[in-house]
């Protein structure tokens, strides 16, 4: 698995916070700093299925790099979305398509937001990969 300095930084930061309530507070802070999404982009096709909360992701290709916008109506999940988007924003589609989000396991964020019902982190990652693959063509 290729080492990703950004993901390593996330792991260090998250794991330095001992308590899960502190981690949630950190994530809420990240979510607060996520730029607001253009409301016209909150469309059905940008909505991620599999999340209990409403999560939208929009991606565009600008000069060969992927640029993302996202939104979520719940604060903790919005924070996780902000964290994930910060890892992929500005990368090439080929990079994102192959990217392994190992930091989500190592910070136990994946366990914290169960993929089926609660946060749908798995669904977010899957959507990012799908978009990236479609932009590789």
């Amino acid at each position: 698995m290729p080492v990703d300095p950004l993901q390593n930084l996330v792991i260090r930061r998250m794991n330095a916070l001992g308590d899960w309530l502190d981690k949630y507070e950190y994530l809420i802070g990240l979510g607060d700093r996520l730029p607001p999404m253009d409301p016209s982009l909150r469309t059905e096709d940008r909505l991620i299925n599999g999340c209990q909360t409403q999560v939208w992701i929009d991606a565009r290709l600008v000069d060969g790099r992927m640029r993302f916008q996202g939104d979520c109506d719940a604060k903790i999940t919005r924070g996780v979305l902000a964290l994930i988007l910060s890892l992929v924003d500005g990368r090439t589609p080929a990079h994102v398509a192959k990217m392994e989000m190992y930091c989500l396991q190592e910070t136990r964020l994946m366990d914290s937001l169960s993929p089926s019902r609660l946060g749908g982190v798995g669904a977010m990652i899957q959507r990012l990969h799908e978009i990236a693959v479609s932009l590789c063509d």
Partner: peptide
């Protein structure tokens, strides 16, 4: 002002099992 799923996640971390949604 708080999303029910956020509340459920915080309660879970405090050992409390409720249902949200």
């Amino acid at each position: 002002g708080a999303h029910h799923t956020d509340v459920g996640m915080v309660l879970d971390r405090l050992g409390i099992a409720v249902r949200t949604g």
